[in-house]
C-alpha cells in the first residue's frame, strides 16, 4: 500500500526561494481558488535571482534528463482556456541529466529582466509572471514547480496632464458643466472637480460619480468587452438650482484599480472612465462618460 502510494507521489520536493526574499515587498494576490496569497513584488529591470532546492523524499532518488528554471510572462484568455501566450520566456539550465539522491540546491539568476507589462487579473484575461522549475524525466513525466510573482511598473509623471472640462446638456431640461482637474491620475490620487448647473428643469434624486473599467480582449471579430463599475460615489443629494456648483473630491486609494493598459501584446486593453450619473425622481439616468488615464506612480514620489 505504502509502495503504491509512493509510486504516485512526486519523488521530490522542489522549493524556490529568492535571494532577497526577506526584504522584498510582498503583495496580496488573488489565486484561482479565490484565496489571496502574498506574492513577491518585482519591477521591470529587476534582477531575479534565487535558489532552487530539490529534495528527494526519503530513500528515493530522482532520475532526470535535466533541471531547468524558466521565467515566463504569460497572457491567458479565459474564454480560450489553456492557451497561454508567452510574451517573455527566459530559461536557465540548472543541471545536466543525472540522478539526485539527496537535497540539492541550484542558484539561478535572471539579470535585469525586461518585464514590460504589469501583472493583471481581469474578468476575461490574466497577465502573469511565473518562475517554472522543470525536472525533466523521460517516462514518469516531468516534475514541475511554479512560483508566481507580481510585477508592477512605475510610470513617470505625465508631461501633459490637462483638466477635463465639458459642457453637456439636454435641451431645455438640464445643462451642466463639469470639470475634473486632470485627465491622468495615479492610483492613489484624488479626483477634484466641480459640477456647475447651468439649467435645471428636472427634479433630481442624486448625482453619482462612477469609476468604470472597460476591459477588451481579443481582436477583430473576437473582441470581448467587459465593463465593470468599480466605484459608485455619491456627489450630490437632492435637486440643485441654477447656478449651484457641487464639489467633487474622490479619493482613488480605496478602490482596486490598475493602471490603464493599452493594447497589451495585441491581446487586451484596460481603460478607465469617469461616469457622471444624474438620477431623477423617476429613476431615469442621465450620464456622461469620460476616459481617464490611470498610472502607477512610484510610491514615495506620489503626492
Amino acid at each position: 500500500m505504502n509502495y503504491l502510494l509512493g509510486a504516485f507521489k512526486p519523488a521530490c520536493n522542489i522549493s524556490i526561494t529568492f535571494s532577497d526574499g526577506k526584504n522584498r515587498k510582498q503583495v496580496p494576490m488573488k489565486k484561482e481558488n479565490g484565496q489571496t496569497a502574498l506574492v513577491p513584488l518585482f519591477h521591470s529591470q529587476d534582477t531575479i535571482s534565487g535558489k532552487v532546492c530539490i529534495e528527494p523524499y526519503q530513500g528515493k532518488k530522482v532520475e532526470h534528463n535535466g533541471v531547468k528554471v524558466e521565467l515566463l510572462g504569460q497572457i491567458e484568455m479565459y474564454f480560450d482556456r489553456g492557451n497561454f501566450y508567452d510574451f517573455t520566456s527566459l530559461v536557465r539550465e540548472l543541471d545536466v541529466p543525472g540522478e539526485i539522491y539527496e537535497r540539492k540546491t541550484y542558484p539561478f539568476e535572471f539579470p535585469t529582466v525586461e518585464m514590460p507589462y504589469e501583472t493583471y487579473n481581469g474578468v476575461n484575461v490574466r497577465l502573469r509572471y511565473v518562475l517554472k522549475v522543470t525536472v525533466t524525466r523521460g517516462y514518469a513525466g516531468s516534475i514541475l514547480e511554479y512560483q508566481e510573482l507580481v510585477v508592477r511598473n512605475y510610470a513617470p509623471l505625465p508631461d501633459i496632464n490637462n483638466s477635463i472640462k465639458m459642457e453637456v446638456g439636454i435641451e431645455d431640461c438640464l445643462h451642466i458643466e463639469f470639470e475634473y482637474n486632470k485627465s491622468k491620475y495615479h492610483l492613489k490620487d484624488v479626483i477634484l472637480g466641480k459640477i456647475y448647473f447651468l439649467l435645471v428643469r428636472i427634479k433630481m434624486k442624486n448625482m453619482d460619480l462612477e469609476i468604470r473599467r472597460r476591459e477588451s480582449t481579443g481582436a477583430g471579430a473576437n473582441t470581448h468587452v467587459e465593463t465593470e463599475t468599480l466605484a459608485k460615489f455619491e456627489l450630490m443629494d437632492g435637486t440643485p438650482v441654477r447656478g449651484e456648483s457641487i464639489p467633487v473630491r474622490l479619493f482613488l486609494a480605496p478602490y482596486d484599480l490598475t493602471p490603464t493598459h493599452r493594447n497589451i501584446n495585441n491581446k487586451f486593453s484596460v481603460k478607465y472612465y469617469l461616469n457622471l450619473v444624474l438620477v431623477d425622481e423617476e429613476d431615469r439616468r442621465y450620464f456622461k462618460q469620460q476616459e481617464i488615464t490611470l498610472y502607477r506612480l512610484k510610491e514615495d514620489a506620489s503626492s
Binding site: M236, D237, G238
Partner: peptide, 9 residues
Amino acid sequence: RGIQHPLRG
C-alpha cells in the same frame, strides 16, 4: 454643497 436637498442640507 453636495447636499442640495433642503431638509437634509
